[in-house]
Each structure stands twice: as structure tokens, then as C-alpha cells.
């Protein structure tokens, strides 16, 4: 089945055999452009909503060759769908599917809506990995998907703004709306020392989520990892994260405990 479509979108990567972005074996499509600018972002090349030049290197016979590459491809939804469909047999065996991630997929709501629709029609499970930062109208684009991987970073709007560039009002509003109808949720919490790894911070997030518990499949605690550094260098983007301290085992255990205490399923990583 080949699809032609004129809805175009900007993506910066498509990764097959993605096994950490939802159930089963998945293909993850990374949308380019994000309204937030999280200090710890490990995909900085996904932030700008347009094409950009990135430095790359080839190594051959011990020699390193530097070259420039354009990050961001304008693709039609049909082109993307054709790639997603290539691994259908793997989705069937593993109960996997497609995940739309980024960047922020909701920055391109029509493109997202179209892709979810195409997958749905073809019987392919869809998940959207979102920050939730979108207008209520744009946010309806996710309602047809099967699963949301919904990031919650902080319950505190001031801190949220300080560390991500935006407050959390839209995020929490959309979260409440999706808790009434639409897809089930996996909540993803980046655990970042100095930002949200303290007990009070995590507890505040948990208390926000308690009323929505029946819609939440699981809580994923994602410990901050100092690995996007090279990508910052390659993209020439300034890195605002001041520290490279990663969460301790105790901090991670505590975060998990806070959720399991209230009957949530919580685990580290994806």
C-alpha cells in the first residue's frame, strides 16, 4: 500500500526498532520544532522549527573528515507512513506500532493528525510523546492516538518557566482534558538534580496525578543523563544546563517510591 499525501511536516529522524518509546517494537518519528527549551534537552537538534546545519564527521582509515549536514527533512505524511508501514510485521508480533516524538509533535498538529489517522486506518498502534504544551485546539490532534507518553516536569509554574522557558499551565490543562477522554497515559518524568529531584517536587507532581490515576498506565522516571553534550557542540547551540550531576540511586528509588506508595506502577527508564 503506497500513500501519496500533500500534508508536509518537518522531521529530523526516523528510528526503527525503537524499544523504549511505548509498548513493543516501534518506529519513532522525530518531529522538528519544540516550544520548550529544557535545560537538560538531549535532542537539541529538535528544538528549532526549521532546517539547520549540523557538523558531522566521518572516520575512514583512521582519518576524520568533517562535513556539514542539514538536520530536518520536509516529508509528506504519505512518505512517513510508507516508512512506518515497513515494520508492520514486527508491530504485529510485538504489539508495537508508531511513536511520534520530537521536538514536540504538537507543533505540527495537522501533520500529526494526518499521520495518526493513516496509522489508525491501517490498524497500526500509535503513541505520541508530548510535552503537552499546545493550545486546546491543537491538542485535539492527539485524541485519536492509542497512547500518550506525557512528560510532566514540574508542578511549579515558576520553576517550570525557569528551566524550560515556558510555564506549565497549558500542559496541566491539556492533561486534565485528556484524563476525561482520549488515549491512556504513560507519564514520563525527567529526574533532574537541582530542578525536580527533591522529595517535595516529586510529591507535588504525584499529587497532581492522583485524580487522573485511572487513566495512567505507568509512571516512567527518566534520570537525567549527561549525553546530549556532543549534540550541543555539533549544532552550535548553547547549553544552559550548568551541572552534569546525575541523580543518585537513592534519588531514583525515592522518586519511584513516592509513586508506588499511592498505588501507581512506576519504573526507571522506559
Amino acid at each position: 500500500m503506497s500513500h501519496k499525501s500533500y500534508v508536509e511536516g518537518l522531521v529530523f529522524d526516523i528510528r526503527r526498532y525503537s524499544v523504549h518509546d511505548g509498548p513493543g517494537i516501534r518506529t519513532t518519528v522525530f518531529f522538528k520544532g519544540c516550544p520548550l527549551e529544557c535545560a537538560w534537552c538531549h535532542n537539541p537538534e529538535g528544538i528549532r522549527p526549521d532546517m539547520e546545519i549540523i557538523n558531522r564527521r566521518h572516520i575512514l582509515n583512521g582519518k576524520t573528515y568533517l562535513y556539514k549536514e542539514v538536520v530536518g527533512n520536509l516529508k509528506t505524511s504519505g512518505e512517513i507512513f510508507n516508512i512506518i508501514e515497513k515494520d508492520r510485521i514486527f508491530y504485529e508480533e510485538s504489539e508495537g506500532g508508531a511513536t511520534f516524538s520530537g521536538g514536540e509533535p504538537l507543533m505540527q498538529p495537522e501533520f500529526l493528525r494526518e499521520l495518526i489517522g493513516m496509522c489508525r486506518k491501517a490498524g497500526i498502534h500509535t503513541a505520541v510523546d508530548t510535552s503537552g504544551h499546545a493550545s486546546a485546539r491543537d491538542f485535539t490532534a492527539v485524541l485519536n492516538s492509542d497512547l500518550l507518553l506525557y512528560d510532566i516536569k514540574s508542578a511549579n509554574p515558576v520553576k517550570h518557566k525557569e528551566w524550560t522557558g515556558k510555564g506549565n499551565e497549558l500542559i496541566l490543562k491539556n492533561l486534565r482534558s485528556v484524563a476525561r477522554e482520549g488515549p491512556f497515559l504513560i507519564i514520563r518524568i525527567p529526574l533532574v538534580p537541582g530542578f525536580n529531584s527533591e522529595e517535595a517536587e516529586i510529591t507535588a507532581i504525584r499529587d497532581l496525578l492522583v485524580p487522573l490515576k485511572s487513566r495512567i498506565i505507568r509512571i516512567d522516571i527518566l534520570p537525567f543523563h549527561n549525553l546530549g553534550v556532543r549534540k550541543y557542540i555539533d549544532t552550535g547551540r548553547k547549553r544552559s544546563m550548568k551541572t552534569d550531576v546525575t541523580p543518585t540511586g537513592d534519588e531514583i528509588d525515592m522518586a519511584l517510591q513516592i509513586f508506588t506508595d499511592k498505588g501507581f506502577e512506576a519504573k526507571m527508564g522506559a
Binding site: Y17, S18, V19, H20, D21, H58, I59, L60, N61, D220, L222, P223, H225, L227, V229, R230, M268, G269, A270
Partner: peptide, 22 residues
């Protein structure tokens, strides 16, 4: 690295090409 362009490793909650890591 040129011999291992296919090498995917699990990082933390996600996977990446080994070559692309610092």
C-alpha cells in the same frame, strides 16, 4: 568507529548509535 556504524547501545531510557555518543 567506521566498522561499527550499526552499533546501537542502550543509553538511559533510550538507545543511540554508539558512534554518536561522547
Amino acid at each position: 568507529p567506521e566498522k561499527y556504524r550499526d552499533l546501537i547501545v542502550r543509553v538511559a531510557g533510550y538507545s543511540d548509535y554508539f558512534n554518536d555518543l561522547g
